[in-house]
Computed example of a mutant assay.
Amino acid sequence: MVIIIYILLILLSFTALYPFWNTLVVSLNEGLDTAKGGITFWPREFTWTNYEIVFTNDRILQSFGISILRTVIGTVSAIFMTALLAYGMSKSYLMGRKFLTIFFIFTLYFGGGLVPTFLLIKSLGLMNNFLVFIIPGLISVWNMIIFRTFFKSLPNGLEESAQIDGCSNWGVFIRIVLPLSGPVIATLSLFTAISHWNDWFTPTIYITNQDLMPVQTILRRILNANLINDVIGGGDSLASEKLSKKSLTSKSLISATVMVVSLPIILVYPFVQTYFVNGVMVGSLKE
């Protein structure tokens, strides 16, 4: 029985990992050779050309920077603001606490819709504004509930001792509560960062300035158009030289772009793995 379970787990892991591995192989294989088919586990004609084209495309590099900036600022600000709200909501003496709890939970079930949200964003002057990536996502009610559950599990004596020593509420939150919240902060930061990094829809609706487009939106347009010129970017001399040698195809270039976009967020996982197991258990605690 144990052997059968291991076999099933291996097959499940293979089905999850193979598409990613095959995309990496295609990105490292010569374009026209890939078009012949039969590329599975190893490149037949190894080449760095596809990555050379991607990394010499100014538009992709700029959008890559926008994505990194958005992910870092958006994650830090969202985690801090959500934790701050959850800290207040974790206090039983907070006036109107039950009403506020119902008010926040209501937003989990009902939303304003795309058109009212668009009109709100426009009225706030966030169209073609970098802050449209940050401000609407500052508070996550789901993350707030997880934070609140964790904060309520902390011993009251810690805060009382700090207050006796003259620590203010801000001091307790910054110096006592946040340092003790490492696992939940790491876990929710990872989920928030992935959400920011993978979001291509928001800029599609609210951004028309090409200089503010994140890399996921650029990749989405490339995949939809399936045109080699969208990756090459037009006037790049290296791209023109490689294209003249007929070593490029849309599939190989798109695969390279997908790998460049995917690897940064994948590399984050090992750094938060030690906190991840403890962090994901927080939501299972009873209040």
Results as ranks from 00 to 15, higher is better:
M1K: 10
M1H: 09
Y6P: 00
L12V: 13
T15H: 07
L17I: 15
L17V: 15
P19G: 09
F20V: 15
W21S: 08
N22V: 07
A35D: 15
I39N: 01
W42M: 13
W42A: 11
R44A: 14
E45R: 13
T49W: 08
F55G: 01
N57T: 05
I60Y: 11
L61G: 04
F64H: 03
F64R: 01
G65R: 10
I66R: 10
I66H: 06
G74F: 00
V76T: 08
V76S: 04
I79E: 00
M81F: 14
M81Y: 06
T82I: 06
L84A: 10
K91N: 12
S92K: 15
M95W: 13
R97E: 06
K98Y: 13
F99E: 08
F106W: 11
G113S: 05
V115L: 13
L124S: 07
N128T: 05
L131E: 08
I135W: 02
I135E: 03
G137K: 06
S140R: 02
R148T: 12
N156F: 07
E159I: 10
S161I: 04
D165E: 13
F173Y: 05
I174S: 04
F191L: 12
T192E: 07
S195Y: 10
H196K: 05
N198M: 07
I207N: 01
T208M: 08
M213Y: 13
P214I: 05
N224Q: 13
L227H: 11
S237A: 14
E241K: 12
K245F: 14
T249K: 09
T249Q: 07
S252N: 04
S255L: 10
V258W: 00
M259L: 11
V261L: 05
S262K: 01
P264V: 05
L267G: 12
F271T: 09
Q273E: 13
Q273K: 15
T274I: 10
M281I: 11
G283R: 02
S284G: 15
